[in-house]
């Protein structure tokens, strides 16, 4: 199956196009709520590519954490900080410079990728799927200390977020 275009590749390119078009929607949409909705589509595309790469666990975590929790937080923040008085310019004055800089970065990245010889398995059938048990073994044996540290970091960060967003007692 290494010759020609396989069904997996077709699905990959469909997902990639959906993901990239949604990402362009995120950075160019004129309405900030539309930008958040495009962001959900882009995240779903990323989860689909995780599925194609045989990492179902990450696809699930992506949909649960990003697709629901983070997006809901962002929608709340958008609604809480909606400026009421005047329609606002959504783009800064340096927009042409930003577009040019990102296109330059894209050219540099693609040039580097094309110029490199990747030592991947010659045939796609040599790629083994990564099972959930393998990931669990890695996280809970080799990476157990970083895992605990990142859990502590997450709870400290969430406490800090609550403290930042809660009103002062002497405000009212």
């Amino acid at each position: 199956m290494e010759d020609g275009v396989t069904a997996t590749q077709v699905v990959f390119w469909i997902l990639a196009v959906v993901m990239l078009v949604s990402a362009i929607g995120v950075v160019t949409a004129g309405n900030i709520v539309y930008a958040a909705l495009f962001f959900i589509a882009a995240l779903a595309g990323v989860a689909g590519i995780y599925l194609i790469l045989t990492v179902e666990f990450l696809a699930l975590v992506q949909l649960l954490v990003y697709g629901s929790a983070v997006v809901i937080l962002i929608l709340f923040a958008l609604m809480l900080t909606r400026a009421r008085e005047r329609p606002q310019a959504l783009f800064g004055r340096s927009r042409p410079i930003g577009i040019a800089a990102s296109l330059g970065l894209l050219a540099a990245l693609i040039g580097g990728i094309v110029a490199t010889t990747w030592t991947t398995p010659a045939t796609s059938s040599a790629i083994q799927p990564v099972g959930l048990q393998t990931i669990g073994d890695a996280i809970f044996t080799i990476w157990i200390v970083p895992f605990i540290i990142v859990g502590v970091l997450l709870s400290i960060a969430l406490d800090g977020a609550i403290m930042l967003a809660s009103p002062d007692e002497d405000d009212n």
Partner: peptide
């Protein structure tokens, strides 16, 4: 790489902190 560059473009062109 294209997705990353789109993200860079958003960071450099948007004004709203949430975006």
């Amino acid at each position: 790489a294209v997705l990353f560059a789109i993200g860079v473009m958003g960071v450099l062109t948007r004004r709203n902190a949430v975006l």
